[in-house]
């Protein structure tokens, strides 16, 4: 079975083609174009959606070319329906609807967060993991129980990706800033105490953000280093709590911030302490990509017919723990 997946929740517009054989999936192509705002600025939803519109034909045809697949050979089309930025989501949905109606191909709206997890499971081989989803849109610890992903801990305000981006922008980087902060942090080992806020299994980053901005005038490198150390220690602690509480023997990290080496180093140590297997989505597929959407659509097609065009939708708010997983 061959599927096309279209991702356009935030800064990335991506198309991917995957082939599914039983429970095995193979990525035939995954093409992306990422919107870059000017230095010091965040994603402007309208500008990002214009970017996606402009590049969508190119990305789509390159994706088909690389996979050596013609549109009429596709069995299904899936698109990310949320959560994300409305104007950006609409671009992906319009592309998906147009193809689906013109070529009469079944269409599947997919939850973007679920996509991160399913692709992570496919690529790492994790069976029954505790999942840490860390990105610009999510900071959640999840485990699967009774047809739904249940939240064991999450952020009470901004996400891990947001604190890195918002701080990064305040010192002149362009979003996404994770890599710049990580690089600058390597040049310091001078830790400055910052607010550490763990509430049970949940975290809160807003106080940490303000406090980091307040120490930046002394040294940007120290601030980046201390921010990473504090925020990642908070994440590691809640992961450790959830591991101890659920007794899971696998940890899977997905989402854009999974690419950060310091974070994965810390979480690897946590896993060692709890004799738990450590899985991390490969850097290339940790962040937003069409493959995550395509694979989830293919999984859903096992148990569901596509939706009819009039029922296709996009939504900015769509919590992962409200999705029923039947496959």
């Amino acid at each position: 079975m061959i599927g096309l997946g279209i991702e356009s929740t935030a800064h990335t517009f991506s198309c991917a083609i995957l082939e599914k054989n039983g429970n095995k999936g193979k990525i035939l192509s995954d093409v992306r174009k990422i919107y870059r705002p000017p230095d010091g600025e965040g994603i402007h939803p309208r500008e990002a959606s214009r970017h996606h519109l402009e590049f969508s034909p190119k990305v789509l045809s390159q994706c088909l070319q690389e996979a050596k697949i013609k549109i009429n050979e596709l069995d299904i089309i899936s698109y990310s329906a949320g959560p994300g930025l409305g104007p950006c989501l609409r671009v992906g949905a319009v592309v998906a609807r147009s193809l689906a109606s013109f070529y009469n191909i079944p269409i599947y709206p997919v939850n973007h967060a679920l996509g991160h997890i399913e692709l992570g499971k496919l690529l790492t081989g994790a069976k029954n993991p505790l999942v840490l989803l860390v990105s610009g849109g999510h900071t959640m610890i999840l485990a699967f129980l009774n047809k739904q992903w249940r939240v064991f801990g999450e952020t009470l305000d901004i996400t891990l990706g947001q604190i890195l981006d918002q701080f990064g922008r305040s010192i002149g980087f362009a979003s996404p800033c994770g890599k710049n902060i990580e690089d600058l942090a390597l040049s310091s080992s001078n830790y400055i105490l910052l607010p550490y806020s763990v509430k049970g299994n949940d975290v809160s980053f807003s106080g940490l953000l303000s406090a980091t901005k307040a120490i930046v005038s002394k040294s940007k490198a120290d601030a980046c280093f201390s921010l990473q150390e504090t925020a990642f220690a908070m994440i590691s602690e809640v992961v450790e709590r959830a591991l101890a509480f659920t007794g899971k023997k696998e940890l899977l990290i997905v989402g854009g911030v999974a690419a950060n080496k310091r974070l994965s180093e810390m979480l690897q140590k946590v896993c060692k302490r709890h004799t738990c297997k450590f899985f991390i989505a490969p850097a290339k597929y940790a962040g937003d990509c069409g493959s995550q959407i395509c694979w989830t659509g293919l999984l859903e097609s096992k148990v569901k017919q596509g939706v009819s065009l009039k029922d296709t939708f996009v939504t900015q708010s769509w919590r992962l723990d409200s999705v029923i997983v039947n496959y």
């Binding site: 485990a143 129980l145 249940r150 939240v151 064991f152 509480f245 659920t246």
Partner: peptide
């Protein structure tokens, strides 16, 4: 309220049934 929310979250995840 933060206390109550936490136990609610735990019931909702570990003891969903």
């Amino acid at each position: 309220a933060v206390d109550l929310r936490l136990i609610k979250e735990i019931l909702n995840s570990a003891h969903a049934q």
